[in-house]
């Protein structure tokens, strides 16, 4: 229960934890953009060699992984926790990788097996490995964000970042409030679901046997009371909020003001440096990737 209510927040007083949530959110978004910018093999092979691709993308990944590793160490989050975050997508990634290997349709000069639409080639394998690493990194970055930022800080950060949307009448404050109340109510809902479940079990309901459809159907007597009690809860909460002078965002101030500090500047600079180096390898600025690839070729 504790896990759910805090997302997967890992409490600590590190610099990363104390950074402004808004900066962390922006950095996470840029991080995702960076991963999207990593090219697939098709785009590359039209003009370059396979080795160039491996060097360019490989170097980019190494830079990103080093960045994640350093952030993890600075934040004092156990590295295992970060690694574990990929658990939920591991099947998706393996599945995608297998499909990509089997049905790779791009340029391929090193074909191992070809029949009908199945086409296994060196290029396909490299492509799918790159894809898998990309997906894993895509999950690990944002999970580092939720490991080092409380849900409240996150929703406050999102509210603050979306403020400009108020100009076009998007109810930013309300959306943020809904998110934070939802987070607040999750442990209560779980507790309640548990209670109802035990009550039904005491009356011989069976939740644990039968196939998945049977089990889903057995859950129905839990969901209905849960839904009803949630409505009642929401009703009472609304009274309690009104009673505490809530009038929406109008005239409301906050106790904790988010202020940018020197650590935020350093965090941003650190990320920007990583971002630039990664882009340098991706887009071959100053011919670094080509030079590295040439070096590799000459060594082989």
């Amino acid at each position: 229960m504790r896990d759910v209510s805090f997302g997967q927040y890992y409490p600590s007083k590190s610099v990363v934890h104390r950074m402004d949530a808004r900066i962390k959110i922006i950095i996470s978004l840029c991080y995702i953009v960076l991963l999207i910018l990593v090219p697939t093999i098709d785009r590359f092979l039209d003009k370059g060699r396979l080795g160039d691709y491996i060097v360019s993308v490989g170097a980019t990944f190494i830079v990103i992984i080093l960045f994640l590793l350093m952030v993890t160490l600075i934040s004092k989050v156990p590295p295992l926790k970060v690694l574990k975050s990929v658990k939920s997508v591991i099947f998706l990634v393996i599945f995608t990788a297998v499909i990509l290997v089997l049905f790779y349709g791009g340029t391929s000069n090193h074909i191992y097996f070809h029949k009908g639409i199945i086409n296994i080639s060196l290029e396909g394998i490299i492509n799918s490995i790159a894809m898998a690493i990309r997906l894993f990194l895509l999950v690990m970055g944002p999970s580092l964000l939720t490991l080092t930022t409380t849900p409240v800080e996150l929703t406050d950060g999102i509210e603050s970042l979306l403020k400009p949307l108020k100009l076009i009448k998007v109810p930013v404050h309300e959306i943020a409030l809904i998110m934070s109340i939802a987070l607040r109510l999750i442990p209560n809902l779980i507790e309640e679901a548990d209670k109802i479940r035990s009550a039904q079990k005491a009356r011989c309901a069976d939740f644990d046997s039968g196939n998945i459809f049977k089990r889903a159907k057995a859950m129905l007597p839990i969901l209905v009371p849960l839904l009803i009690s949630s409505f009642r809860r929401a009703d009472e909460l609304a009274y309690a909020m009104d009673s505490r002078c809530y009038r929406g965002a109008k005239g409301r101030t906050r106790m904790k003001i988010m202020r940018l500090g020197i650590r935020d500047l350093f965090g941003m600079l650190f990320f920007a440096a990583m971002f630039f180096v990664a882009l340098m390898f991706i887009y071959d600025f100053f011919g670094v990737s080509t030079a590295l690839a040439n070096l590799a070729y000459s060594l082989i």
Binding site: F6, S180, L183, R184, E236, L237, A240
Partner: peptide
Amino acid sequence: NQMVATIIED
């Protein structure tokens, strides 16, 4: 049913 935030002081 009266609490709005996840941290007591909030």
